[in-house]
Structures are given as C-alpha cells and as structure tokens.
Nucleic acid binder design. Sequence first.
DNA 1: CCTTTGACTTGAAGTACTTGAAGTTCCTAG
DNA 2: CTAGGAACTTCAAGTACTTCAAGTCAAAGG
Lengths: 156, 156
Amino acid sequence: MVRVRTRTAGQAYTIREAAALTGLPASTLRYYETVGVIGPVSRGETSGHRVYDEEDLDQLMWVACLAATGMSVADMRTYVTNGQLGVQAAQEQIQLLTEQERRLALEAERVALRHRYVRLKIDYWHAVAAGDSARTQQLSKQAAALAAELTGTTQQ
Amino acid sequence: MVRVRTRTAGQAYTIREAAALTGLPASTLRYYETVGVIGPVSRGETSGHRVYDEEDLDQLMWVACLAATGMSVADMRTYVTNGQLGVQAAQEQIQLLTEQERRLALEAERVALRHRYVRLKIDYWHAVAAGDSARTQQLSKQAAALAAELTGTTQQ
DNA sequence: CCTTTGACTTGAAGTACTTGAAGTTCCTAG
DNA sequence: CTAGGAACTTCAAGTACTTCAAGTCAAAGG
C-alpha cells in the first residue's frame, strides 16, 4: 500500500501513522482529544477523518512523555495549557513537576524494595529445590527482616 | 511505633506490609480478594482487619507475576481456582520470579529515566522564569534527547 | 478514663483507557 | 464503474483499578 500525500506544504498523517510515531494507540489519541489533553485535530474536508500535522505530532510526543512519567490526565491538561502560556505560568509548572519528582522518588524506593524481596524469594526457592532446609529457614528469616524494615518506611 | 506480633508460629502481615512486599497497592489486594483472584484472607479476631501470612504472600507474589505479564483478571481467577497455582513446582516458581526480577530491573531503569527527565524539566522552567534563554535552549535540547530515550523504552 | 491519631473496614463513585457495535469513507482490483 | 475490504467515524459499555466517604478499631498521651 503506497500512500500519497496531497498536501504540498507540511506533512499530513492519519491517526494510524500518528499512533505509530508517538507510540500511543489510536484509541488513546482520540481519547486525549475528547478529554482536552490535546487541542482539536483538523479533519479531512470530505471524510471527517483526523489529519495530524507536524505540530500535532510534537504536542503528542510531549504528552506521551508526560503520560510516561505517570502524570494524570488532569495535570497533563493543565501542563499543556500552561506551556502555551509561557513565562507567567513557570511557577505553576515548577510546582507541578516538583510534585511529580517526589512521586517518582517514592516509586524508585518502592521498586528497589520489591526488587530485593523478589531476589530473596528466588534464593529461597532455590534452597527449597535443593532441599537445603537450613538455608531455607535462614532466607525465610531474612524475608521477615526485610518486612520488619519496611514498617514505617512505606508511608503514603 | 513498635509492632508486636502475637502469632507464635509464622509471620503475620498487615495489608500495608503485604502491599509493600508484593508491590501491589493495598486497594488492589482488596480488589483481587473481592473478585476472587485470591482466596479470602483471614481476619483479626476482634478488628476484622486482614491478616496475611507467608502463604498468602506467596500466592500474591504469583498473582503479581501473572498480572505483570498482562494476564487478565478473568484468566488469573481461572488459573488460581484450577489449583494450578498451588501445585507449581519450585522450578516454575523460580522461572516466574526470575522474569519478575528482570521486569523490576527494567522498571527501576525506567523510573530513573523519568526522574531525570522531570528534574531536567524543572531546571528548564527555572531557566524560563529567570529569563536565561541560553540555558533554556540548552535544557530544551537535553530534554528532547531524553524524551527520545523515554518513548523508546516505554513501548510494551 | 477519655481523646486523639492513624490504620483499617466497606461500598460507591471516579479514572484512564479499551473494546465493540454500527455506520461512513477511502482505495484497489475486477 | 462497481464491489469489497481496510481504515475511519461516534457512542456506549466494559475493564482494572483508584479514590473517596463514612465509620470501626487499637494504641498512646493527658
């Protein structure tokens, strides 16, 4: 299937192409538009199909990054509209991002803990498979110690 | 806050501890119980609070592994109620956990990357607020480079 | 003893998509 | 030109959690 572009200036993309380029499914692109995370995309004159240009793609790339950091749709909407405002919104942008940073730091901690726990469990089952009951008990204790350590550290 | 375990044999965990160890939020643990992905968890005599033991934790670990591989709740329920979960050999459990460990290593990487990205954006908006256009442009470039990395690793 | 603080409980509502149905429109091949 | 299939459209419903509200329970301080 060879696709021919009719536009002379700038590129035009179908929703499928935009999805492939941003890494977001087409359904999500439509969803983001309906909830206002991105502005309305222009439509084909006769077809009513969405036509994405480079600018739309840029904005979508940006939103894809925010989504990847775990930002909520409401915050993304705020963030995008603030971004278009420029300097006066900088303070708010910084606040939004600082909150996001804190969340990510917490997330990193949680992942590290889980990682340690899973490694311990792997060792445990190796010991079980080997019939090493001394080591089995030892590792079981370590897991309990890890659990004890986590009491009080896992606020949220 | 000193936590005293009343059980003489085996460990008892609160929902918060179970959540931290399995990596699933407490709300998800409750949800999994209500929809039958895991069996009913025993409750504190007077409190009615959920009390997780080692066996519950193990079962939850497997379910967490299955969920991480993208298995639907319906399939997980089928899998568990068919009793295939309890019968699993140590070898298979080790394999599942090893895969989980790999995923966690990846997850840690992704979180670190997102963290860097957000910090960069914070710097960016600080530069914007300060009117430092040279630094603004520099950081914008850096963010774009990181964004490319981020969207590349976020595929699934 | 009483109050406060914090973790827990349930159930209902909200969130962020995803999927499915039913109906155009585009494109290629006959 | 016309038929057929792929890709698009909207809207409604489904999914997998998540958050909120209202209330219970337990330990610590006054």
